[in-house]
Design a protein around this nucleic acid. Sequence first.
DNA 1: TTGTAGGCGTTATCAA
DNA 2: TTGATAACGCCTACAA
Lengths: 335, 335
Amino acid sequence: MAATIKDVAKYTGLSIATISKYLNGGNVLEENRKLIEEAIRALDFKVNEIARGLKTNKTMTIGVLIPDFNNLFFTTIVSNIENVLIKNGYSTILCDYKNDIELEKEKFNFLVNKQVDGIIIIPQGDIGGYIKEQLKKNIPLVLVDRALEDVECDTILVDNMNASYNAVEHLITRGHRRIGIIRGPDNIFTSIERLKGYIRVHKDYSMKIDESLVKKGDNDVESGYRCLNELMEMDVPPTAVYITNYEMTLGAIMAINERNVKVPDDLSVIGFDNLHIARIVKPPLTIVVQPMEQIGEVAANTVLKRIKGDMSNYPSMVRLKTELMINQSVKDLRG
Amino acid sequence: MAATIKDVAKYTGLSIATISKYLNGGNVLEENRKLIEEAIRALDFKVNEIARGLKTNKTMTIGVLIPDFNNLFFTTIVSNIENVLIKNGYSTILCDYKNDIELEKEKFNFLVNKQVDGIIIIPQGDIGGYIKEQLKKNIPLVLVDRALEDVECDTILVDNMNASYNAVEHLITRGHRRIGIIRGPDNIFTSIERLKGYIRVHKDYSMKIDESLVKKGDNDVESGYRCLNELMEMDVPPTAVYITNYEMTLGAIMAINERNVKVPDDLSVIGFDNLHIARIVKPPLTIVVQPMEQIGEVAANTVLKRIKGDMSNYPSMVRLKTELMINQSVKDLRG
DNA sequence: TTGTAGGCGTTATCAA
DNA sequence: TTGATAACGCCTACAA
């Protein structure tokens, strides 16, 4: 059906080898070059990437594995990854694992079997074993958003600890002393780091942590909702709350609305991640903003660099800065 | 590096052909079967999909092209598409075109060149020509969310007209007579259909349309914001507004917040698409809900069906129903 | 049931 | 600069 190199060869009277050389940027007589180009146009010839892949052992494809498709944080990162990759001639095979660590392994293997040239993954479970296996086979692999203990490979992270530190410090310097936190689960890297920031800033300001103000959610909407309710039902509720991811922020706002909590008079709130959300709630929410574009770009560029064989400063560990976007959801209690 | 059929053949003492037959479900002596399975395990053999693809002319890959990655409506559909495809052994190459009709063509060609076995696309621009080209080549192609004039192929749509009809009717039956609409651009299929529903229900209720209540946005946050402001700055503002997509709904809410418009007392509001948003605004928003899961499933199944060669009732046109989720953002003006 | 051999569309080596 | 030819790993008649 589709034209092959053979056809181009016939059309031009040249050999297959010559056409192939032309296609791969080799030198060809000016005269022949024109002829070949004419043939390619006339026959609407396109290189068969599959055949080429068989020969070169490259698929020009990067596998990207994320926890969940319905999560703007992840998809925004993916979007930026894809931007960079496609500019470099690579395509993206995208999978999510629906936050299921079994599925995570399955999909990871799926990508490996697809013979992608590299993998970018936002990991969750103990997939470290699988990953080490692949690293041995020398397939470039980049971890994003979450580090994996005991796995030596390129990792792109956000400075979660300081993100938390700055957010909570913002509250402390405005006179808050009872600050609740809605934190994520223990098995997720970012949750742990974000909690650490909360703890550290308390230490630095010589404030004792009231454990009952630390509520553990599951990083989903429902648990944000539940945790906020728990906080407000305490005998002495906090004057401020810091919520450590986007979904839980949504849930918390739902609870705030239902309980008719006045923000920031009854409660000051700092949430996470979504600029739009920050503006559609009333009053506009102070939030921690992660550099999603950058994360994607760095991840993609890292994988490309490794594919090209550039192993300089491997394994690299990049920590990107967050920003605290200040709006009107925090009350200044001083004076 | 990786084991090939040849290696398995050597290991077992059988021929390549026999191994291949085993791999493709052919009959092999029980004895040999065991031997082969042992070899596969021992050598950690995996079929080379690329080589197989070269032979079978299949990549077991579906291309999915959406307007924008940062849009929950699209990504949710993609998520469901991917679910179905992976269960059937297919992987998904995902691209977005950032709402840019030039990029749309480019990425479409990119997918074609990748020799995907089928394409699912949420189209925007006049990509009809390209698509017809592909249809001639018999590559299965499914249109989602938006029909394309003059292009005969499988199409999965939402019943936009009735979605609008029901939403606006909901307002009318509660006594609203001046109902604003924030509609999308002329060149987008869903915008046109949603506007039609607005017009038709006015006709059916013998209500004349005040053209100044029809505001045209660009389906983005900014234009929702702008249009709502325009509506509220009218000499006689509407008592209700219907906003025809998710992003514009966000923008409209931002404007509502900033202007301190009381919902539903000053203005009744019906928005679009996002369940979470509906609950984090106050009061909870009445919205049109689209069946995103279904859309994705139907799209994926359709493409798979065509790939299998089942061309029954081609081209198929599926219209899925929306639902009006009623919350507290609409005021009953009667009595 | 099993094996032989040719071919899928490229790339790459080595002569010419 | 060009061309003949052997791979790449798999599938598939066809023959044994």
